[in-house]
Amino acid sequence: MTNEQGVLLSALQANYYFGQLRVVQERPLLVETERGRKKIRIWQNEALLKLHLKWRERLINDDFFIDRMYVTRSGLPSVRMGSLSVTCHDAPLEPVQLDGNEALLATALTRLVQYSRDVPAEEVPNSASVRVRSLYEQAKQIGFQDHDTWKMVSSCFSSACARAEEADRLREPYQNRRSAFILPEDFSLQSCTAIFDTLFLELGQSRPVDGCRLLARFFLAESMDHRKQSMNNLFQALKDQKLFDRETADLLQAEWLEPGEWMRLLESGINREQMQSDPFSIEEFKQIWDQKIKLIHLFKSVFAQSGDAGGGAARGADGQQSD
């Protein structure tokens, strides 16, 4: 045990009601106590800590648990150690799979969409269609040596443009929002565990970012790993909650429509010319491109039944398959 760790452990023991403490993992720091396993977080940014405290306050509910801060003996949510702050959280171990837990996840996601909101943290990205076109022009000027990649990029260009335009159209009404759905930057299914048949959501300590973008990536990643039925169940459960509003539906579709994988393939081709390695194979591109189209179809088939799917990606979603 390092000296710093010893100081930290005695500070934890002095400030929380723990009798025994034993380190079981260094990063992230997990300690075993007589009251179960706890996660210790160290905060260098006091403003971020305050933001996370308020964030958790807004999310308190009785459908799922949040990794709230334990209060110290004097009732404070953190321990001050010099310029750092230390917080203590629960650390349940039981992992959560999407299969079979669709309803639980849908409840949690619906609440997040409703209450995990703040002033948009990031700057509004440039129009997707402008980026698509400028990248394509840039690539034409540089000249592509990799014939196969260029063939794929150019054959998908018109679809990429259509998808980008549709994404821009869907995002347009929400450009000047005062409140946006936010999620921690590292949000994934790994952020979820279970205890007493209840979901335990870890908000962690990452900065908040655009929630729709992360959620769209989350759905995409899960849809690639799980059978279609499971995603269908999740979307159906979300629809049953009736809280997945038009804004979220539009922005999610915009994320899937934005041809990020096409831009990545193109950039990867340009960079390869410049001897930089960012391997992104045509296979990977095709997989994502096709999966996104399937996902939009699935999303629309579930949500559009009663006209809930928002602005409807009538043109873009029907973009041709890569092969």
Binding site: R68, Y70, V71
Partner: peptide, 8 residues
């Protein structure tokens, strides 16, 4: 443990 007197 989170400092709440009432679990709502």
């Amino acid at each position: 443990k989170y400092g709440d007197l009432v679990i709502r």
